[in-house]
Design a binder for these strands. Structure first.
Lengths: 232, 232
DNA sequence: GAGTGTGAAGTGATTCACAGCT
DNA sequence: AGCTGTGAATCACTTCACACTC
């Protein structure tokens, strides 16, 4: 076990390993080797071992990893032992979608607040029965409810302002769907999901079929897309 | 100008540059330097110059880049001169959201088909007035309408099957929202958007505040998340 | 024999630094 | 003087290969 800095590429892969272990556990499999897991996502087995070794010695030489135990360890490492409260800001099409999206409220993340500027939307409810509130109530709600993650689904020009407001209120984790680069303060993490980049990347590929270079495509599985930029 | 292999990290950044140039053009700015652009997304100016230099010599030494011309060039490079037809498969919460999502149908991408297996959904219409069709009609529609991009928004266990079907029908670009690693055939590009990984990544950060290492966060802006794995 | 944990080597991406053009 | 284009240097990530344990 080392105490180096952990790359986000590594932690992203931990999520994937966890998913894999969940399935194995559900099928009653008790042990698994890095090689077996590696084959599932064309990844190198050494990479899996290395990723895990950053956090401890979870395996048994000659045997492999105990599925249940490794699963518990990953849950612990990823901080999934506690439920995180989530607020969604911006209830346009995408925000509304996310509010109704099951995988979102499911499991370890619970959407507890919806906020929008548009007076016409106030009071509307999503399928889950949550009421849309004014963004003026956001700061209060974050503090009162202990909201840890904010999803920004507002137009690009409003995103920076929302980030400032929620950072001010003490939020340190933000999932940003607005197509802008947000400059986060140190200590605040912004993950970006940029559908335009994804689509244009596909467009590039369609326009330049030669870019298909098989070995590259392969290796690019699981690089992460975009993480925040702290100022300076 | 080189003819090396272009990394997806580079093409993702091209999208960002284009966005920036669109704004500059809208504000009437005529020329811009790599340094100015770099400051906007805390990126290194050499990286911008290098990214662009893969495709040609667009700048003028001592002066910078002409906004309009570089914009045109990027549009050309990214294949955004033609409109790409898009189909969405899986009209659950997320798929429906995407179908109604404006940024999607806007600009260079046009959603022309919605497909779902659930008989109860058939015939339903989205805001834009599109009818949901059976997935049995998918293969036909792809060929008839010239659909180039398919968005997969079905549950994890159905995603692989959809990928096979649309690949079979000739689609070479796929945007996958299902939380699984899809093994694409060579020549087919799959971009993954995995909200679970994003959320768990934020959870990891909340659970391990020490992971905040400022210089790393900075550098991680704009790495891409996950691209397909071709078999083998 | 099988499979982990890990230094060392290899590969790829970013940044530096500067020659060369305007 | 200012800014591009690019080889060289640096840095980060992945893969190899093997000592070690069960």
């Amino acid at each position: 076990m080392k105490t180096e800095k952990i790359s986000e590429l590594t932690t992203n892969r931990l999520s994937v390993y966890l998913r894999c272990l969940n399935e194995l556990a559900a099928s009653g499999v008790e042990a698994v080797s890095s090689k077996t897991m590696a084959e599932q996502f064309n990844l190198n087995s050494a990479q899996i071992r290395k990723d895990l070794a950053y956090f401890g010695e979870f395996g048994v030489r000659g045997v492999g990893y105990n599925v249940e135990e490794l699963r518990r360890q990953l849950i612990e490492i990823l901080g999934l032992t506690v439920k995180r409260k989530v607020a969604i800001v911006g209830l346009g099409n995408l925000g509304t979608a996310l509010a109704n999206y099951h995988g979102f409220s499911q499991g370890n993340f619970e959407v507890v607040g919806l906020f929008d500027d548009d007076p016409a939307k106030l009071g509307n409810r999503t399928r889950a029965g949550l009421r849309i509130q004014s963004t003026q109530a956001l700061t209060d709600a974050i503090r009162r409810e202990g909201i840890e993650i904010v999803v920004i689904a507002v137009p690009a020009n409003a995103a920076e302002r929302v980030l400032e407001q929620v950072t001010e209120a003490g939020v340190r984790a933000v999932l940003n769907f607005a197509p802008v680069h947000l400059a986060a303060k140190p200590g605040v993490k912004v993950k970006n999901v940029d559908l335009t980049i994804s689509l244009e990347s596909l467009s590039y590929f369609l326009a330049n079929p030669s870019s298909e270079a098989i070995n590259i495509v392969d290796r690019e599985f699981l690089r992460h897309e975009a993480a925040a930029g702290a100022a300076k």
